[in-house]
Write a protein that binds this DNA or RNA. Structure first.
Lengths: 225, 225
DNA sequence: GAAAGTTATTTTTATTTTGCAACTAAGTTT
DNA sequence: AAACTTAGTTGCAAAATAAAAATAACTTTC
């Protein structure tokens, strides 16, 4: 049996943290920011902050606000990842972090570089404050898993892209090569992309630029048990 | 810009709620409990409660405690589902519910029936307090999704079961029939079950009883992009 | 107690999907 | 214009899946 005091719960810390992932050249990178307060002042960490009960309508809005206020970015793809909540993850006390992950094309953030913001390879990070390494690992795993059965990697590319670029994106995320014809067959069968009349001029044969058909959110591939 | 007060965050409510699912006859059922306090006193709702910062080491432990204290049950399968957090989901104020879902064989809970505990079909519920309908819908969807590519439904069966029973379980969850030989081939190929020498005596040919091989956690099926 | 009925389990066969390789197409560079 | 490179397509064998049929092991009925 517990008394009223215990039943009401002790005060806990409630934050959101955002794992912003992007793909540069051949590496998956995560956005980190030098902390502007204690604990871990000055150390690179995930952008995050307290939930602001009076201005955030829900946790997704809080994550959007963090992205906007801390990084000056708006991400079309923002999904709840997991909630890390324990007595030990934050030295200040029992704490819950509702974590989100966001995907952005490298082009969309190139302009945003600031002295406090840095991008590091998500697969090869130094030790970060709190349980941020674990949060990032979880985000990368989620991205990899979901890329095996969905069109998620499209969100790492700009609005217009070639099929070869899309295949390369999948290959970089998954870490292994894909068959060209099988890949194109699948994309074509699912029909969530549309070809535009534009082409990517390069050194060789120009490639047709594609885009996600409007009104197509996240496409899931068929799986059969 | 925000002042210190706002940056520290306003007090928010942090709870865990548990969606306990089980399969009876031909229906997926969810455990509900009549609330013993306001708000919504007396109404059936998901078992849940405040996180107890001084006794719960993490949110999973809090969910286990809820299951134990409120339902008198221990569930081998307990997974974080989603965190529902918003200004409007609880009349008392800004609230976050870290929700978990648990799976149990019907046999394991038959003995636990109490006057406050009831099981209702998860697909056909009355309106419940808070956003509990949405939480349950999310849990059912997660179970259905995950059943298409994992051995999750095993956890809805007792330790020993026949392959036909397992197939029926999949079919009830997924809502469509599966091919018998393909199903058995897949289970056999994955090799996470072992046959026992026991059989299920019935009206007709006895079926061999199987069990999950020890040291096998959750088996995921292969998916190819 | 043999025949019929029912469920379990395996085997066979047909159909679909995938993986690989070769081929054509369209540009640039030499 | 010949060689080179990347884009995109086509054909086919191998693998996986689905459907159907066959066989096995029991119980119940007549």
């Amino acid at each position: 049996m517990h008394n009223k005091k215990i039943d009401k719960g002790h005060p806990v810390i409630l934050t959101v943290d955002v794992v912003l992932l992007t793909l540069t050249k051949d590496l998956l990178q995560v956005a980190l920011q030098k902390r502007d307060k204690e604990p871990y002042f000055g150390q690179p960490a995930l952008p995050g902050g307290y939930v602001h009960a009076e201005e955030d309508i829900d946790s997704q809005a809080a994550a959007r606000r963090v992205l906007r206020e801390k990084l000056g970015l708006i991400s079309p793809y923002l999904e709840q990842l997991y909630t890390f909540a324990s007595a030990t993850r934050d030295p200040r006390g029992w704490s819950a972090s509702i974590s989100y992950y966001a995907l952005l094309p490298h082009e969309a953030i190139a302009a945003q570089q600031s002295d406090r913001l840095l991008f590091l390879p998500a697969d090869d990070l130094p030790q970060l404050p709190f349980d941020h390494n674990r949060i990032i690992d979880t985000a990368v795993k989620r991205l990899r898993d979901k890329s095996t059965y969905s069109a998620l990697p499209c969100h790492l590319l700009p609005e217009l892209f070639t099929l070869s670029e899309l295949q390369q994106t999948y290959e970089q995320i998954l870490g292994h090569p894909l068959d060209k014809s099988a890949f194109r067959r699948k994309i074509s069968d699912l029909g969530f992309l549309e070809a535009t009349s534009k082409t990517r001029k390069g050194v060789h044969r120009p490639a047709q630029l594609h885009r996600i058909k409007p009104a197509n959110k996240l496409i899931l591939f068929n799986r059969t048990i």
